[in-house]
Design a binder for these strands. Structure first.
Length: 607
RNA sequence: GCCCCCGUAGCUCAGUAGGAUAGAGCACCGGUUUCCUAAACCGGGUGUCGCAGGUUCGAAUCCUGCCGGGGGUACCA
């Protein structure tokens, strides 16, 4: 049983326990065959975590076998433990793994000096590559995120998608996948008719200079205000959009201008956030790609006319039909998304997965579109290994709420992302001036910390949770926050500066056998698995919590006191001890640094 | 109406492919700095895990029903 994605100690434990069980209970083995208790692979999968880390790294409950083995759980556990240890003694892993019975549990303990040595060496030699993998070799991940609307400001509501996607893109890269970060801004639809009318009525060239997007929003808001009394405005807007679709030069010119100023604005915000994309295209890019898809669907016999509209009806009765064309012939967003799905498959054939990081409200919409693609591939008899259906995933996330304040672009009530970042940076600045006034790059550091707080606030809970936007929570730098991790990182860097020598790799690892150090080691050892889990479940949050645990565990070591009540320092007169501890410091610094990178945060060396 | 998600400490949340005494942060009270960054660390918790049944050796976790909150429900995106 070898698999690079598995914990080798766990594998050894599972092998020993299953072999021991076979030896001890041949009758039951015969009756049951190679499964559960008797199969190393299954056993590996059903390992749990001991209640207390000092009991071991993993555990296996034997309660359910009491009937089968005609014995009480504690007796079974202790028998198996003895036999498993005998087996281990005969193998070369003898000194590494121990099996200890505790009640009805079998606990697997890993020799701490071996775990410590192997873990620290892996981190120190791997540096930022620690935790990398070849899991995704020759596989491609498409990740769509952010996707704001043109001619509208970048509000905090776009933050979650942007930050989640940016992190996932980095995670898949780390795991060896080829990754394509996609931004798919909304640059088409009747709202552009409204914008064109509003601009022609009340706008001027100078609105497109300076704070252009703000001015455009003001025009958009004014349009909706005046439309309440002037019924002709909506008709004019529809007319303008029609002209835009038909390629009217003036309408196209204005639309292009709106796009240009918006993209300039978005690029600035992405620069502020440190967010990148590999492929940017707007909805308008799909204008000429919808008709071919409609034709394919028609040819496959999946379409029908219903209530005047061209639709695809779905077998799942809980899902409404997908509208390809309205009664007046116009296409809809589902049509565009279908065309987009096909487009991506054509550009990146056989992609491994294609993720849509979009709010939970669109769950049914994505289900519908993906169902249609599956039906199309069925109808066209696409070979099973050449199908995109099943590879597309809607990665949904909860709402960002603002208490009783209703957010609405139309009403002009919007919290600008930049406003949030600026406020956070300003607060961080005040704190630096108070705590560390001699710091060289105050403004730059303040931005990194403020932004760290904002980004982390979105990644410190599970995706599907709704978040109530609270200024004091986003602007908090204490406790489970981004700045806490950054602070810990800066302090680690400070230790390295003070030590100011090459980090020794061959140290006396037995000097790190204390409970506090071992907790740190364990968390370092688990880091690669955490990255994998985060990727598999689309949850950067797994990395967030892991880093918080790691930082807390290290801070405990850092501020530990001896019997006399004075701090047991990392750097002391004892060179051997200092060397071992500095190796630990360096390893923690590297992992926090890399973990923060995967989340999309910067790790300052001083703050 | 129907479908989906959620309900854990005063607040915000972990823990949910069943496992050992349900954990963190915030807030609150107290302590730690002649000492490597106190954005930190240490101590202080009697929780109807929404309610009621069920399955199991074992349920916050799985099943059923109910209550409460949110979302979706064909010509907006």
């Amino acid at each position: 049983m070898t698999d690079m994605t598995k914990d080798k100690y766990k594998v050894q434990f599972a092998d020993a326990v299953s072999a021991a069980s076979r030896n001890l209970f041949p009758d039951a083995h015969k009756a049951m065959g190679d499964k559960e208790l008797f199969d190393s692979e299954t056993l590996y999968g059903s390992l749990v975590k001991p209640k207390d880390a000092s009991m071991g790294r993993f555990a296996f409950p034997v309660f359910k076998y009491a009937g089968l083995l005609k014995s009480k759980p504690p007796e079974i556990a202790s028998k198996i433990a003895d036999e498993a240890n005998r087996i281990l003694d005969r193998s070369d892993t003898a000194s590494i793994i121990r099996v200890v019975a505790a009640g009805g549990f079998l606990n697997g303990q890993v020799d701490t000096s071996v775990l410590t040595r192997e873990t620290l060496k892996a981190v120190l030699i791997g540096e930022n590559a620690y935790g990398s993998s070849e899991l995704g070799k020759d596989k491609t991940y498409l990740v769509e995120y952010s996707s704001p609307n043109i001619a509208k400001p970048f509000g905090v509501m776009h933050l979650r998608s942007t930050v989640l996607g940016n992190s996932l893109r980095r995670i898949y890269k780390k795991l060896g996948y080829t990754t394509v970060g996609i931004n798919y801004p909304g640059d088409w639809g009747t709202q552009f008719g409204k914008m064109i009318v509003a601009y022609q009525k009340w706008g001027t060239e100078k609105d497109l200079k300076g704070e252009a997007v703000k001015n455009l929003l003001a025009l958009y808001v004014r349009f909706h205000d005046e439309a309440k009394t002037d019924n002709s405005l909506e008709d004019q807007a529809r007319e303008a959009f029609k002209k835009l679709e038909q390629g009217d030069p003036e309408c196209v010119r204005l639309w292009q201008l709106f796009k240009d100023v918006s993209h300039a604005e978005f690029d600035r915000v992405y620069g502020l956030l440190g967010v990148e994309f590999d492929w940017v295209y707007g909805e308008s890019k799909l204008n000429d790609k919808m008709e071919p898809v409609i034709q394919r669907l028609e040819k496959a016999g999946l379409t029908e006319i219903s209530e005047g509209a061209l639709v695809v009806k779905l077998p799942d009765e809980n899902l409404p039909p997908v509208l390809l064309r309205r009664g007046d012939g116009a296409t809809l967003y589902a049509t565009r998304d279908l065309a987009g799905m096909v487009y991506r498959w054509e550009e990146y054939p056989l992609f491994h997965e294609s993720l849509y990081i979009v709010n939970v409200a669109q769950t049914d919409h994505f289900k519908q579109c993906m169902n249609v693609i599956a039906m199309l591939e069925d109808a066209e008899r696409a070979p099973s290994d050449h199908r995109m259906s099943g590879r597309m995933k809607h990665v949904d996330f909860g709402w960002l709420r603002f208490g009783d304040q209703t957010m609405s672009t139309r009403g002009g009530n919007i919290v600008l992302l930049e406003e949030v970042i600026d406020k956070a940076a300003e607060l961080a600045r005040e704190k630096i001036v108070e705590k560390n006034p001699d710091l060289k790059k105050i403004d730059e550091t303040a931005h990194i910390i403020g932004l760290g707080a904002v980004i982390f606030s979105q990644l410190s809970l599970r995706r599907q949770r709704d978040i109530d936007f609270q200024w004091d929570e986003v602007l908090s730098f204490e406790g489970e926050t981004g700045p806490y991790l950054q602070y810990t990182h800066a302090r680690l860097c400070s230790l390295m500066r003070k030590y100011d020598r090459p980090v020794p790799v061959d140290v006396d690892f037995s000097l790190l056998s204390g409970d506090e150090e071992q907790r740190v080691i364990e968390l370092l050892a688990d880091f690669p698995k955490v990255i994998q889990d985060a990727g598999e479940q689309y949850e950067p949050f797994f990395i967030s919590t892991h880093l918080l645990r790691l930082a807390a565990a290290f801070n405990k070591v850092y501020q530990r006191k001896d019997e006399e009540g004075s701090i047991d320092k990392i750097i002391s007169d004892n060179d051997t001890l200092t060397g071992a501890r500095i190796a630990l410091v360096k390893a923690v610094q590297l992992v926090i640094n890399e973990g923060l990178y995967l989340l999309g945060l910067e790790a300052p060396e001083e703050m």
